[in-house]
């Protein structure tokens, strides 16, 4: 740990202000709480929201895992891990079960998280109505009035055009029967993991200066219609080429030389642990 920095880089006043926003966000599940997004030694859009949340709640006893689209080894994940490790000295792990604090971009780990864990998601666009309401002020009024017809209309329009709902990620959800929330660009496959989860989910948007949360055991329902219900991606009979897992979320790999397509677990930490165990399948929340 580099002693020339304050613990977790941010000054204590900043961390306290962000924690206050987090407490408010937990008190109002799905509600976007504005906060004074700080400058960090990484650019906006590279996970500064999630990073500020992580830096504000991390303690010396925590064990941290950082994943980027499921991968522990991407440049962004490694840079964030190095930065947090340098300024806090906390332990780093790739094991989702071992971590007490997980920062993630675009994925929720395959293993169901427990009530002793916190998952921090980096959010590029926190406003779920952004696509249908240009004015953020008007969007906030729509939230206040619980007027979400435009969010449903967006889905209706997709059914009209394509015969089905085509949203692949960032699927809007109704949290605790009150606020419609953008769950960050996690795939549809991960959306159901938010519902009545044991862990605390925190969402940080640094560029948009918003924090929101899904507390443990909170109802999270994807928006859908009576005759077009929400469904997740069908992984079919695909198996991971590395660990042999089935029924998990896969990355598709294309070999241009042979023209073959392979699949491997998107969650690399889960995949390597699964391979070590010699298991071929570890049931996650969406695995049947």
């Amino acid at each position: 740990m580099d002693e020339s920095y304050n613990f977790a880089f941010l000054d204590e006043g900043s961390k306290r202000e962000i924690r206050r926003a987090i407490i408010k966000a937990i008190s109002l599940p799905g509600y976007q709480v504005p906060f004074g997004s700080r400058e960090l030694p990484i650019g906006r859009g590279w996970g500064t929201g999630g990073l500020q949340v992580t830096l504000s709640i991390i303690g010396p006893e925590d064990t941290l895992k950082v994943i980027d689209q499921g991968s522990d080894d991407s440049v962004n994940a490694i840079s964030i891990k190095k930065f947090i490790s340098l300024t806090t000295g906390v332990g780093i792990t790739e094991d989702s079960e071992e971590a007490t604090l997980i920062q993630s971009r675009h994925r929720i780990p395959e293993i169901p998280l427990t009530d002793s864990q916190v998952l921090v998601l980096q959010v590029p666009t926190p406003e779920p109505l952004r696509g249908v309401e240009r004015s953020l002020g008007a969007a906030r009024q729509l939230h206040a009035d619980k007027e979400y017809s435009s969010a449903w209309l967006m889905l209706y329009e997709q059914i009209m055009r394509y015969g089905r709902i085509t949203l692949g990620a960032d699927y809007p959800v109704l949290v605790d029967g009150r606020y419609v929330m953008a769950p960050s660009p996690i795939p549809r496959y991960d959306t159901l993991k938010l519902h009545n989860a044991e862990c605390l989910y925190l969402f940080g948007a640094g560029r948009e200066k918003m924090i929101y949360a899904v507390p443990p055991y909170t109802s999270v329902e994807p928006l859908d219609f009576e005759d077009y219900e929400f469904d997740i991606e069908d992984m079919g009979d695909r198996t991971c080429r590395l660990c042999g897992a089935t029924g998990v979320y896969f990355d598709e790999m294309f070999d241009p030389q042979t023209g073959e397509r392979h699949y491997q677990c998107s969650d690399t930490g889960f995949c390597s642990k699964n391979a070590q165990r010699g298991h071929t399948h570890e049931p996650g929340i969406n695995s049947k």
Binding site: E147, S149, W152, Y156, I159, F225, E226, D227
Partner: peptide, 9 residues
Amino acid sequence: IAAGSRNVG
């Protein structure tokens, strides 16, 4: 939808 309908058909 604004009046509460949730059936596309």
